[in-house]
Design a protein around this nucleic acid. Structure first.
Length: 555
RNA sequence: GCCCUCGUAGCUCAGGGGAUAGAGCAGUGGCCUCCGGAGCCAUGAGCGCAGGUUCGAAUCCUGCCGAGGGCGCCA
């Protein structure tokens, strides 16, 4: 069965031209012309240029001969050979060598001018302009994430959704989507009441209620609780403050904190229920009020108002989601896998209220467990226990924690071993990246010390950058725009993590082999390298910002 | 039973239908007269199984096996 919210992961994504180096348009156009001369008509936009996996396959490669061979009734390799011949007769000065390879690829070996153009692009556009996409222009996204119940400290999963949602929002914004982030507070209902009752029991030394909260923090917080407060209300606020603090220390913030209680008190829930009733989607039976969500693909109908007269979690949440469309035309929820079953009913309710199925999307994140692993149990079966995010943050710090969360696809289950992260502290990938940034800053400081200043870009000759390490660094920078667009389209911040590690590898390699300030470096080359370092700084700065990590000047 | 996600190197994970599947950690061996060695270089080992679609599959489809999650008048 295909649900609309799954299709959602590719939707409203516009048909706008993607951000790619200019050179590929030139090459695609040349290929289209060559094909046309051979009597085959293909629009340049349909010709895909790839980055070959191996350097010896050139700078760019096209599979067009393979794709059109059937239609053209030609052998792919033979067609590719004709294409090469045609291209050679009219070829662009940038094309140094063409070859047919493998089953029929046309490989382009280019002069490095296109990479030098990347350098100019990056430094002239700067960290604000480079890799800023417009694919989202005119569209707005409302993104809800975390929304953990205010009944205790933030747990492992909350940390993951926090890092994920916050970075995704940053990525959306860089792609031109007006993005509004929200946290929904379930400050009402059975769980909050149980929590309040548990606080009360701990404070008064009485028996915990059945299914009450037994964690140690309950007793701690109970001892802070004044005598004259409503334990439910106070408990929600106490927990929420704790959650907020944990998230803030991870650099995760929200544009809006929405209260479930307020939705009910303001009458918003009642209004939504009336609309559903008016639409004829509501039934009363067994003393409860039901919504016929099964008519929109849900497994069964769902209760809106319980037989005791209290609304379920579902009822105010419908009103909430309905309201969120005032703050974005694509409404996205980031949910843990344990809430996956909730999605069909919400989608159904929103469609009943007149919203397009495709305008609501749920991103299901797989669960995460934080474990401690002692030396003794190293080889035994994992007996992990859930720990609070705070414990992770205190053990490794916000950057390590956040990068650990963002290193991995949201589709895979994650196990974070705190002891492993702490013991590998100096080897942690986040330091690999941040160290590169600190080195760049250090080059700047050392340049100042030596009285070396960067000349205007216009007076710099980027063609002096011919070292493979220099070119590799520019290649890494050239992929940032498309990486960001891909990360937005696939809702995959971890693609930025992968990219920034590649950039760091390229930079460290360059730094190792290509001295910048050393006295034996000829001054024109020094200038070109200073600008190259600046371009790397721009790249790191953009990537770190999208990931919500700090960019340290020194470590 | 039905639904969702996942299965890639010893471990943790990347991988946009493309060519010879990549990193980090762990292991081994190298690199400091020179901008920061939290760095660089070298080295072994892998797509759960079986079909299918395709010129081409880790990637798409089907089935099986395995792991996690869901199937409340909880949230």
């Amino acid at each position: 069965m295909t649900f609309p919210w799954h299709q959602g992961r590719g939707i409203p994504m516009p048909t706008c031209r993607e951000l790619k180096p200019v050179i590929i348009e030139v090459l695609a156009a040349a290929l289209a012309d060559a094909l046309s001369e051979l009597g085959i008509d293909v629009a340049p936009s349909e010709i895909h240029m790839e980055r070959p996996a191996h350097r010896e396959h050139g700078d760019w490669s096209s599979n067009v001969a393979l794709v059109v061979s059937k239609k053209a009734g030609r052998e792919p390799r033979e067609l590719a050979a004709d294409l090469v011949k045609t291209l050679e007769s009219t070829s662009d000065a940038q094309i140094q060598r063409l070859e047919v390879a493998g089953p029929g690829f046309v490989n382009f070996h280019l002069s490095s001018q296109w990479l030098h153009d990347v350098l100019i692009d990056v430094v002239s556009q700067g960290e604000n302009g480079y890799a800023r996409s417009e694919i989202g222009n005119g569209q707005s996204i409302n993104l809800e994430f975390v929304s953990a119940n205010p009944t205790g400290p933030l747990h492992a999963g909350g940390g993951r959704w926090g890092a994920y949602g916050d970075s995704l929002a940053r990525i959306f914004r860089r792609c031109g989507y007006a993005t509004f982030t929200e946290y929904y507070i379930n400050d009402r209902g059975l769980q909050t009441e149980l929590f309040g009752a548990s606080l009360l029991a701990r404070r008064d030394g009485t028996e915990l209620p059945e299914d009450g909260y037994a964690g140690e923090y309950v007793a701690e917080w109970a001892s802070e609780m004044p005598a004259d407060v409503d334990p439910v209300e106070w408990g929600s606020e106490r927990a929420l403050a704790d959650v907020r603090q944990s998230l803030a220390s991870m650099n995760v913030t929200f544009d809006h904190w929405a209260s479930e209680k307020a939705l009910i008190d303001s009458g918003a829930m009642e209004t939504a229920l009336e609309a559903l009733r008016a639409g004829g989607w509501v039934d009363d039976s067994d003393g409860a009020t039901w919504l016929r969500t099964s008519e929109f693909g849900d497994e069964k109908d769902r209760v809106l108002v319980k037989s005791d007269g209290a609304p379920t979690y579902f009822a105010p949440d419908i009103a909430y989601h309905h309201q969120k469309f005032d703050r974005g035309n694509l409404v996205i929820d980031v949910l843990g896998a344990d809430h996956h079953g909730y999605v069909p009913r919400m989608s159904a309710a929103l469609q009943m209220l007149g919203h397009q199925a495709a305008s609501y999307e749920a991103i299901i994140g797989q669960n995460v467990t934080l474990v401690r692993r002692g030396k003794e149990v190293k080889l035994s079966k994992r007996t992990g226990t859930m720990v609070e995010v705070r414990e992770l943050l205190e053990a490794v710090g916000p950057d390590v924690a956040r990068f650990a969360y963002l290193l991995q696809s949201i589709d895979t289950r994650q196990t974070i071993d705190i002891d492993m992260l702490s013991s590998q502290a100096n080897e942690n990938p986040v330091y690999y990246v941040q160290y590169a940034y600190a080195r760049i800053a250090s080059v700047g400081r050392e340049a100042d010390n030596r009285g070396i200043t960067r000349s205007p870009l216009i007076e710099t000759d980027p063609t002096l950058l011919t070292h493979e390490r220099e070119l590799e660094l520019l290649r890494a920078l050239s992929t940032l725009p498309e990486t960001i667009e891909m990360a937005a389209r696939d809702r995959a911040p971890h693609k930025i993590s992968t990219w920034i590690r590649e950039l760091a590898a390229a930079f460290h390699g360059f730094y190792h082999d290509c001295p910048v300030l050393r006295s034996d470096v000829e001054s024109d080359l020094q200038q070109a390298r200073l600008w190259l370092v600046e371009s790397a700084r721009v790249g790191f700065s953009i990537g770190l910002e999208l990931l919500g990590l700090t960019a340290p000047e020194e470590m």
